[in-house]
Design a protein around this nucleic acid. Structure first.
Lengths: 395, 395
DNA sequence: GTGTCGGCCGTCTGCCGACAA
DNA sequence: TTGTCGGCAGACGGCCGACAC
């Protein structure tokens, strides 16, 4: 992957030389998360960004918040910078992206042909993820390593020893070192992490239900990540800025950047965010202009499993309408209403975006009507008007 | 005091019935912090708010951030609501205020005569504040209570017991109960908190240098507060919104509220904020229009001491100029440059606002030239122009 | 194959006065 | 007056196999 990681970042509290391990970041972020390549063209959705802020502040966007008439529901941008980070306190992974909206001239020159998408999330191959049990997190004992996991990920034990045991040394997202005694004992025999485990649990404040990741990478290094359970209401309001002001802030920042074609910075929190709101342009173009969808159509969509792998759920498209006709008319953000085959009561979103689903076609793909106007970035139903600085309120 | 406290607040994670103790909040906030009364008129300074955000995000405001030409450097508002809060994780105190900018008509009707200021911070009388030592926070022992403090604040011990001891039960800002064994023992005799102290220290994650407050209030209740040491760089970026967007957000929120005379919400963090940025209008008017200041004039200003009392430092006015002539011309925010008699290298601000200082006058106060135009809210040098919705970029 | 438990040992918590600053 | 320490007793951390699901 081409994007830089661990760049010096004055908003980071992670210290000067912050070489965050890319592989570990992606493992913690999950198999569905991919970051577009630096320098590439992306589509930014203020609506999606707003959703993330709503989840983070635990407050829906207020109906009183004014809309920015000049801000379209999507901005085509060049991605200038992506840095991966992890919260010092919680190890929550997030990415910082610097985006620059394209000028109208640049947009005309952009290729709207579907390109190769390249950077699919590079999940490590040799890893395991286990949700912690009460015994794992209790002070009474250590960590029970699933047998297959230990045999796949950890270096083989010397079974001539009695009992077979070794010391494992791994590093977390902050490059902190953690040591564990790995032992194979008990009746029946099992793999355990004993000495060192409890300090890890208390340092990371892990509780039953949280998950740990152990990765053995190509360089024979052990990487250790954590994924906290979704204790949804544990999210606390920031007490820095009201959620209304935050919503206004993200809109104002995007509107100003669009009006002046200047750079702006956003944070993307993969574990809290319902959906990615910065999408590779090629992916967007392919989904919106080169895929036929209609009500009644069957589709698949990927979801993450407990064990950090993916599985596909199936559903049917029940409608294609604006999510918010007032604020964001003609937006492709979550424009597809869907029903799920296995619906466990609000477990899955009732609305998705075109690029999140894989339509199931039993017939060969014909060129869509849109493919005839490939040179026009936006169909008439999506008026992408140039913005006038004078109506922004900025100096 | 008239303001409501502990109102139901859907952005609060503190639970349904949040009766936060006003007395304890003020004790934790410190003797210099006062909150204006609900319903009263106040002056809001976006610049000061911006300073708070800069400190909270640990990042100075970017020069690239556009200014809002329509937003004046101060807004006269009615204060509709004040609620006091404490961070669930850190116990950091903060206040949420709902402000509504006055219409031009309302501003003309406002009394600009200096009124009584009323709500000076109501510090408790029977309390003590101690900065924790290494022994206090070590797991090896308990908490050493200064003798005078114990005798003043704690209920008297029954000295017929051997040793004299009692159980103290107190409550923190979240109304959590804490029990301590208070004992008078050792050679020489001293007051100690033993059983219960260490769970408090570990629950609050106190370290040497942090301070605790014990208050005995009128209702014979023990209140317990904490004040963490200024580990300045411990502040971490929020990872929700970029600091630029936050700055834009607060400006946009204030500008929109001013343009539409609608309410907006701000958070005030007394312990992180360099200066109060919501000031009682009466206080502002008195300082700006009824006080003569000039270069060379001597003044006093209050500061908080280690023991949570106040002392006054003296200084000399060295200049009266705009802090930021480009963004905020003709602002009274930190318009006074000062030199301090006892200057311990950047310990005290080199710029203050008029309402923060007490000018020393050896002669009787004559009416200032401004007092002749009391009925005009703003002198010509402060053009308070009405705002035009059309140039705000809002719908 | 793995979660939880009783048993058991060792370390550290935490209460005490001594002592010194 | 009060911060830190050595001493000591008891609680809990943490390693073990047993056992059950």
């Amino acid at each position: 992957m081409k994007f830089s990681s661990g760049e010096l970042n004055d908003q980071s509290a992670e210290g000067e030389k912050n070489y965050l391990n890319t592989e570990l970041w992606h493992a913690c972020a999950g198999p569905l998360v991919s970051l577009p390549a630096v320098g590439s063209h992306v589509v930014y959705f203020p609506q999606g960004h707003s959703e993330q802020v709503a989840v983070s502040t635990n407050k829906e966007v207020d109906a009183q918040i004014p809309n920015y008439s000049s801000l379209p529901p999507q901005l085509i941008c060049q991605l200038h910078n992506v840095t991966m980070h992890a919260d010092i306190e919680t190890d929550e992974v997030y990415a910082q992206m610097t985006l620059q909206p394209l000028t109208q001239q640049e947009q005309k020159e952009v290729s709207f042909l579907p390109a190769d998408l390249g950077g699919a999330s590079k999940q490590p191959t040799n890893y395991f993820c286990k949700t912690l049990t009460a015994s794992d997190t209790s002070t009474h004992g250590g960590f029970s390593v699933p047998r297959r996991a230990a045999e796949k990920v950890f270096p083989p034990l010397d079974f001539s020893l009695q009992p077979p045991a070794q010391e494992l040394i791994g590093r977390d997202l902050h490059n902190n070192e953690w040591k564990f005694r790995h032992i194979f004992r008990g009746q029946p025999k099992r793999h355990l992490l004993t000495t060192g485990w409890s300090v890890f649990v208390s340092a990371k404040r892990l509780v039953a239900g949280d998950a740990v990741l152990f990765i053995w990478n190509d360089k024979n290094e052990l990487l250790i990540g954590i994924r906290r359970a979704n204790r949804s209401q544990a999210m606390m309001p920031s007490s820095v800025l009201s959620s209304d002001s935050m919503h206004l802030g993200l809109l104002a920042a995007a509107a100003h950047a669009a009006a002046t074609n200047s750079r702006f910075t956003i944070f993307y929190n993969p574990r809290t965010c319902p959906s990615e709101f910065v999408i590779a342009l090629a992916e967007y173009v392919k989904a919106v202009y080169h895929t036929r969808v209609s009500v009644g159509m069957r589709f698949r969509m990927m979801f993450e499993t407990e064990e950090s792998s993916v599985r596909r759920y199936m559903g049917t498209i029940t409608g294609i309408t604006d999510l918010d006709p007032v604020r964001w008319p003609n937006s492709h953000w979550r424009s597809v209403k869907v029903g799920w085959d296995e619906s466990a009561a609000g477990e899955r979103q009732p609305r998705v975006s075109l690029w999140e689903i894989e339509p199931l076609t039993t017939f060969p793909m014909y060129p869509s009507p849109y493919s005839l106007r490939l040179k026009r970035p936006w169909p008439p139903s999506l008026p992408y008007t140039g913005m006038n600085n004078d109506d922004m309120g900025f100096n």
